[in-house]
């Protein structure tokens, strides 16, 4: 479990992380979402004791990371896959990390097998593709068989097979009862992997909830309606306070009235309905609605 209280990081004149309070629970894949520069990486570095919080604290399994004697047995992290010495072999890289935490050498062979790098273990890491480096980073995170795992942008550079593999891996790690925190800006990937979400913007917590709750809350109650006489139905719905837009082929898109009230209005007005469907937002839509006010680096919209 990871627990942050009032976590704040100020660099000179910019506040990268601003009073974050959250808990990442075991048994779930928790997605950590936010635009570039929102403070995701800074938060991850503070969890790992690499950066010191300006104020507040973050604890892993109830302890500050700096105080852990054998941290890899409790926390595994993939931060930057390229952060390896290019001249060292994958095997020696992992062996030095294992040795630092009293982990037996046989475990190195095991994790190399798990990530599928056994064949290139003795090759210099400098020649690895980004995808291979990513797998090596994941191997490092798994070394100590830890209960808490952090992955920063893990699908970067992976091919479709690799993406499927890491998705399955993360879900099975969570299913075993581990705490898994994954940061990403790839919404579609997050929608498939995470079941809880932590969303931050400009260093502040915007949402901390289950994926389906978040989507339901931000779907804004849009309903698609097809009727025999769409024009008359639209008038009736507007009269009851709904906002109605005309879609393709006479379809109506109704906002501000739930499907229940639309059905009642149709019955009262004697309308023949061909279709009545709640539209759920995608994670992407929900996310954009949530972060609309807090995008630090928004591209200028072409006029």
């Amino acid at each position: 479990m990871i627990e942050a209280r009032g976590l704040t990081k100020v660099y000179r004149d910019t506040t990268a992380v601003d009073g974050l309070d959250f808990r990442v629970e075991p048994g779930h894949v928790t997605g950590f979402l936010g635009p570039n520069g929102a403070g995701k990486s800074t938060t991850m570095r503070m969890i790992l004791g690499l950066d010191r919080p300006t104020s507040g604290s973050v604890k892993v399994n109830g302890r500050e990371y700096q105080g852990l004697v054998w941290p890899l047995h409790q926390v595994g992290a993939l931060l930057d896959a390229r952060a390896v010495h290019p001249g060292r072999s994958a095997y020696n890289h992992l062996r030095s990390l294992a040795a630092a935490n009293g982990i037996a050498r046989i475990r190195v062979d095991e994790v190399l097998e798990t990530v599928g790098l056994t064949g290139v273990a003795r090759k210099r890491v400098g020649g690895f593709s980004l995808g291979m480096s990513q797998r090596l980073g994941i191997a490092g995170a798994l070394l100590g068989d830890p209960g808490v795992l952090l992955f920063d942008e893990p699908v970067n550079g992976l091919d479709p097979d690799g993406i499927l593999w890491i998705r399955t891996l993360m879900r099975s790690l969570a299913a075993e009862g581990r705490t898994v925190l994954v940061s990403s800006h790839l919404m579609s990937e997050m929608a498939l992997t995470a079941d809880r979400l932590l969303i931050i913007g400009e260093g502040r917590l915007l949402a901390d909830s289950a994926m389906n709750e978040l989507i339901a809350r931000h779907s804004a109650g849009r309903v698609e309606v097809r009727a025999a006489d769409p024009l008359r139905l639209a008038d009736d719905l507007r009269a009851r306070g709904g906002r109605v837009e005309a879609g393709a082929d006479g379809m109506l898109l109704v906002m501000g009235l739930g499907s229940v009230r639309i059905g009642e209005a149709a019955a009262a007005g004697g309308h023949v309905l061909h279709q009545l469907r709640d539209v759920t937002a995608s994670l992407e839509e929900a996310y954009f609605r949530l972060t609309e006010d807090s995008v630090t680096y928004r591209a200028p919209v072409p006029a």
Binding site: R45, L48, G49, L50, Y65, Q66, G67, L68, P71, L72, V75, A77, L79, D80, A83, V84, L97, A100, N101, G140
Partner: peptide, 9 residues
């Protein structure tokens, strides 16, 4: 160095 200090704080 980040991996090093993550393994040994």
């Amino acid at each position: 160095i980040r991996a090093t200090f993550t393994a040994t704080p």
